[in-house]
Nucleic acid binder design. Structure first.
Length: 260
DNA sequence: ATGACATATGAGATATGA
């Protein structure tokens, strides 16, 4: 069972690379972020031609998340609980049949939060509190659970090529990193670090600007967090960094894990 | 020191991103 996460940075603008990568990687489940379209405008038919069902939670212009799955999706939850006034489409969750039971998967687009000290930063931290509360509820189900997506948090210095350049950024603030640790400490496992250890140079995002890709000036902000029941079945992790070198790419690359 | 780059909206310039 291969489960990938990918911030596609507009599904319409990057449909060519999306389809090319699906044909190459053949994942079973793909969590997409920043689809940047309304739910009804999601190009479902093109994905269905490749054998995928789609659950979508979009909005106009910004944000938007989706889950593609070869197997049927059920129990779809759109939106993160805890604030009925939150109109931003950043969370979708679904259940997928797996082996004798089920796998629960969430596609997460955590707020960027820049600049620190702003209302956006307050929203980011509050959103992280809501995610932790919901994750605690899900963990009580004792299911295989994969919470994956663009977390917009650099967990450790080794997750950036130039960590000192990020010290004034919301992605690397002590508060952001502490809240991510709090989430993990509920009993979740960072899949890439479980298998790759402290290996350096594992990045998932390179800015479009200033030749960041050419200089390998990247950061690791797209993560798979696993419940114990999922972590026990983790076999492989893969960062498809070559996709960043394709023509008109997203600024993020797909990250995939396999469970067995 | 600054800007660099890309996308959506909508038809020029602005908001957002990380």
């Amino acid at each position: 069972m291969q489960i990938a996460t990918w911030n596609i940075n507009s599904v319409k603008a990057h449909m060519d690379v999306a389809l090319a990568w699906l044909k190459e990687a053949k994942p079973d489940v793909v969590c997409l972020q920043e689809i940047k379209c309304e739910t009804d405008a999601f190009p479902k038919a093109a994905f269905e031609e490749l054998g995928y069902n789609a659950a979508v939670f979009g909005q106009k212009t910004y944000n938007g998340v989706a889950i593609l799955s070869r197997s049927p999706l059920s129990d779809v939850r759109r939106g993160l609980p805890g604030d009925d006034s939150d109109g931003q489409a950043r969370y979708i969750e679904a259940v997928i049949p797996w082996k004798a039971g089920v796998l629960r998967v969430a596609s997460i687009y955590l707020p960027n939060g820049n600049p620190p000290g702003s209302e956006k930063f307050t929203y980011k931290l509050a959103w992280m509190d809501r995610l932790a509360a919901h994750a605690a509820d899900l963990l009580r189900l004792e299911e295989p659970l994969v919470l994956c997506g663009d977390y917009n948090v650099i967990p450790m210095p080794g997750d950036a090529r130039n960590p000192e350049a990020w010290t004034v950024d919301a992605l690397y603030q002590p508060e952001s990193r502490a809240k991510l640790r709090g989430l993990v400490n509920l009993g979740l496992t960072d899949a890439v670090r479980l298998l790759a250890g402290e290996a350096p140079g594992l990045y998932t995002f390179w800015d479009y600007q200033a030749g960041a890709w050419q200089k390998d000036n990247g950061i690791r902000i797209d993560h798979h967090l696993l419940s114990p029941q999922a972590a026990d079945r983790l076999k492989t992790v893969r960062i498809d960094r070559h996709v960043r070198g394709w023509e008109r790419p997203s600024d993020h690359v797909p990250v995939a894990i396999t469970l067995a």
